[in-house]
Amino acid sequence: MPLRLATQVTGTFVALAALASWSVADAQDDAAALQTAVLAGSCANCHGTDGHSPGAIPSLAGKKEEDLLKALTAFKQGKAKVTVMTRLAKGYTDEQLAALAHYFATRE
């Protein structure tokens, strides 16, 4: 929906007030959004809510999507010398890792 794109661009919800009608497509979007949020929920436990880390574990929010995905892929393939992410990334499909990279890249 065009108005959703407006939301995407501005990053605010002001545009929502102009939403004319609610449709099945919106419900599908909401369900998908909830699904990604569920997937990302376990990451917040270490990386902070929405990837804003208050401590020593790196923040993820707003990092470049391709960098995040590259890191996650390297973790999954066991190519990175790290402490815990290799063990965790192996638990997700490539599609899930892509969704996670997109999710955290789009947090402000």
Partner: peptide, 17 residues
Amino acid sequence: MTTRRSFLSLAGAGLAL
């Protein structure tokens, strides 16, 4: 699972929005 069109993932900061 497709997330491209999802609202939450398109939105920016998510706090209490």
